[in-house]
Design a binder for these strands. Structure first.
Lengths: 173, 173
DNA sequence: ATATTTGCAAAGCGTTTGCACGGTT
DNA sequence: AACCGTGCAAACGCTTTGCAAATAT
């Protein structure tokens, strides 16, 4: 059957090849923030006939179409997630690499206020919190936690940021 | 005479070579957020006997020593600025690429509140605002604006983010 | 039928590194 | 004198691209 993202592709009149369908499906089913290698791995599991170059091209295309959003959580690799309804940000657990999503209206307000006082309109913004779970604490709902990817090398490019793996999905306000 | 950063190096017992002294000086005098190529350019102007590999190594060393901070404003290249007193963040003018620094106590508070409600302590955070100057607006104080660098290619790695150049220094609260 | 997309391998970019040499302590 | 820092060029990791073959419309 047709994945949510495949539907979006069709709406936009993209030519639907087998490989695009697979990538679309992998993305639709991803509850986390996979990098290209991970997407390639998951896609290959469904269909051998896919090269990593195609994954790169597809991901770029989808991003240009506003279907996907590229994230940079440090580590030199781009991570992707389907565009969602409202804006939300990420808290990365520095111990485990898990990513927790959150959103906060007060924060939105504040960003605009800060920009405004400098004479600017906010076009976009980047916010990532790196945190450590505190001892006896309400364990953030680890619902949704899907089969996990797990990059986490290091060494190159804009790298040398906190190492990480990926994703729990959780809490808002 | 001795630059501010050179002093810090000595305090930490780093071996002071000619090249390190030059990089230290360039950084001390930088009012902006140069990338490695730009540092190399400025350093070369003062002393031919410097290779870009050394700039990379020095910048990494200084960062490990807490003398320098690495920033990522998108564009795939790391940018550097001397560690300052308090934490501050950056607003990047998407038209000109200029970087304006700001800080906001309320924002600090909010970040900790958000993390806390998810059960985390904030270890570090990343925040960048990308904005467009609005029409008839109080022109943010463009004091400090020093001789400007000006990267701004594109094309690779974690790139394909808003293009930009660099720095005006301005406003806090 | 024709314009697009794909796979492969090569190129590109920022950054790091092995090695022999040179300078600092 | 012993060690560490440097220059050069090669290696790296992620991403893009040229080209010929395959495919969607």
């Amino acid at each position: 059957m047709e994945s949510r993202i495949e539907r979006l592709c069709v709406e936009r009149g993209l030519k639907m090849t087998g490989q695009r369908r697979v990538v679309a499906r992998v993305l639709s089913e991803a509850g986390d923030h996979p990098d290209v290698e991970e997407l390639y791995r998951r896609a290959s599991a469904l269909d051998q006939h896919i090269s990593i170059a195609t994954v790169y091209r597809t991901v770029r295309l989808f991003e240009e179409q506003g279907i996907l959003e590229r994230r940079d959580f440090g580590g030199g690799r781009a991570r992707y997630e389907p565009s969602e309804d409202g804006p939300h940000y990420h808290l990365i657990d520095v111990e485990t690499g898990k990513v927790i999503e959150f959103q906060d209206p007060e924060h939105e307000r504040l960003m605009h206020a800060i920009a405004a006082r400098l004479g600017f309109d906010v076009v976009s913004l980047r916010l990532e919190l790196f945190g450590r779970r505190h001892e006896a604490a309400a364990p953030a709902r680890s619902d949704a936690a899907p089969g996990d990817p797990a990059p986490g090398h290091d060494s190159t490019a804009a790298s040398r940021e906190p190492r990480l793996r990926d994703t729990i999905k959780g809490a808002s306000r």
